[in-house]
Design a protein around this nucleic acid. Sequence first.
DNA 1: GTCTATATAGTGATAGAC
DNA 2: GTCTATCACTATATAGAC
Lengths: 212, 212
Amino acid sequence: MTAPRRMGTENSKTRQVLLDVTERLMLKEGYASVGVRRVAREAEVAPALVLYYFRTLDDLFLAVLRRRADQELETSARLLDSARPLRALWDLSSQPGAALISEFMALSHHRTAIRAELCDHAERYRRLQVEILTRKAAEEGLPLPEGVPPVALLVLTTALARVLVIERGMGMTDGHAETEALVERLLRQFEGAPLPGVADSRVAVSGDGGTA
Amino acid sequence: MTAPRRMGTENSKTRQVLLDVTERLMLKEGYASVGVRRVAREAEVAPALVLYYFRTLDDLFLAVLRRRADQELETSARLLDSARPLRALWDLSSQPGAALISEFMALSHHRTAIRAELCDHAERYRRLQVEILTRKAAEEGLPLPEGVPPVALLVLTTALARVLVIERGMGMTDGHAETEALVERLLRQFEGAPLPGVADSRVAVSGDGGTA
DNA sequence: GTCTATATAGTGATAGAC
DNA sequence: GTCTATCACTATATAGAC
């Protein structure tokens, strides 16, 4: 029954710096480069201070994940609720920072506490997006392809963007230009699509963009 | 000028076991779970034996990567050269073992020797597939969508399959059924597509599959 | 709130016996 | 070909001074 260890407050500036440093480190050098000493060095504080704000390394990772998850939920909700939700989703998922979630996926292989949090976030994130897309599809003229469930469109879009971001970060660019051109063409088709119910509101993957 | 350290031969059975163990470990618990002692324990040998076959841990990772890369090149070349190359590609990329490359991508963030090898493999892999797909598209009746560069089709297919494999491995299945149904529908369309040049050989993402 | 010092356990890698 | 023993280093985490 020893006294509980002391711990820093949530709104400390140092705490934010530690979160920033960890996030940057994960993106640049991968989760394995994150350690008490390394984070402390980058933040220019003593190693013990890291464990003053975060009891364990897992807590540090979890805090970074939660902050990012909240931010993603907020940003995506705002952007998706626009005139061009699909393009917004594509742009959002194509940001370099989107690679952070992939890093957490890799990390979660051997940190089970993180897997739970990550699965939870992914589920909430996807459901929120489906809800917004579906609502917009019902309410407005809807720039969305018919016959494709919003959730499938969501998975496809985010998956493709995510892989491109990761490959780009590794210096792989083979086929990216062609793929991005294809996405751009599809997005334009959705955005320029006529009202639902019209015959050629379908989305042709091939073709010159018109109905010939 | 000390004598070089001793080292095992390429075709040793123990060596193969160590490679198997490492690959399995990476898939199940992530690259961070791979260590000299852990691999030795799983293979039921002494830790020093791992470093007898692989001078450093990097060498072990590289050997696993190279074996997998060679195997992927061979398998994909064989499968892609079939009547339904796209479906073959999809099935191949959807195997659980495909997650290994993702794990190496994460690992390569802080092991530069691995990044080079991985980029090299990815480039050769993609080019081989493009070459086969393009050749088949030219030679045969071609079950391929027009207006979409083979390389873009390749990136799209492998990216989507990869993300689904990873998510499945984490227990996330949200939207997978709908996405797989969409892929299945597209694959069927390609396979059942008439000869190129015909008006409706285009690929409709929406619609009931016919030209209505 | 931040530090120094340290406990305890882990790591990759090496030398040399069998 | 496989082992035991060990070196040098790093890891997370804790205790307690300032």
